[in-house]
Amino acid sequence: MTLSTTNTTIPPPKAQKVVTQPGDRIFLGLSRGSGILLLVIMAAIAIFLTVRAVHAISHDHGNFLSTFEWNADQTPPVFGIAVLAYGTIISSVIAMVIAVPIGVGIALFISHYAPRRLASPLAYLVDLLAAVPSIVYGLWGAIYLVPNLQGLNLWLNEYLGWTGIFHKTDPSSSARSLFTVGILLAIMVLPIITNVSREVFRQVPKAHEEAALALGATRWEVIRMAVLPFARSGIISASMLGLGRALGETMAVAIVLSASPQLTIHLLDPAGGTFAQNIAAKFGEATDFGRDALIASGLVLFVITLLVNGAARLIIARRKEYSGANA
């Protein structure tokens, strides 16, 4: 404990540390260049899509915003995104209504309810849901889910048909509807919502929870008073990230939905379409002009997802600063 022989002499300060080697400059250039390249790619996506889209929209003989049908390959071309925008938003909203409460519930289950030793295998199970490719969800949705949801559809039609929303015009038609698509999308975005929410729940200060417990709160009251208020903005941004995924999902929707240029409030009718589904379905036999028209609809989808994701990220970023100041 007494005098150890460690040499405590301070190394002589080197004043010439500022000398940058050529290696340093090259490496900095390369890494900064890659960062800039990413920005360039994002800009290029916007620019190239816009160029083709403007070409297509200027030759559209319908109204791009309000026309129902998508006949870009005929002459004169008539196409519009009304049905697609409606279908995209409605199916995503259905997905959100189902997935947000369940996703938050699962996150709570893993972070607060599950036995400690089970928590990480359960989290892995949720990751498995995320790892399944969307085409497999589509295949399962079309061959397994659609026939199995028929019963639920008829039941909804019988008892809730008076609302209009759950009215099924032709009860014998298949369940390839926006409603089914919404359910499938809900399953697909669950892991995103769960994982982000779980991350936020983990950041809740232990002291808050313990304070609530000390006041005699039950576990649910702890969650309502300490966990959820702290995590609210995190849950919002988790939902928006999920929404971004649901809006852009292509193959599962393309396989499951029986598309038609109809804008209907009856969610159980096999009708409607989404941006991504329409692109996948029409691309095969599209002419050169038809492709440009599809690119135009892709641009709209790009802008929507950009706004949703950007907003989600801004909320998360603001949160980070907030919790950092609190820590």
Partner: peptide, 23 residues
């Protein structure tokens, strides 16, 4: 760059496909 990397995570795969298609 950080912000756009985050936003880029959310670019739908079909939009990436359309971009390469047009470009």
């Amino acid at each position: 760059v950080t912000f756009f990397v985050d936003v880029m995570t959310g670019v739908p795969s079909i939009v990436a496909g359309l971009f390469i298609l047009s470009f």
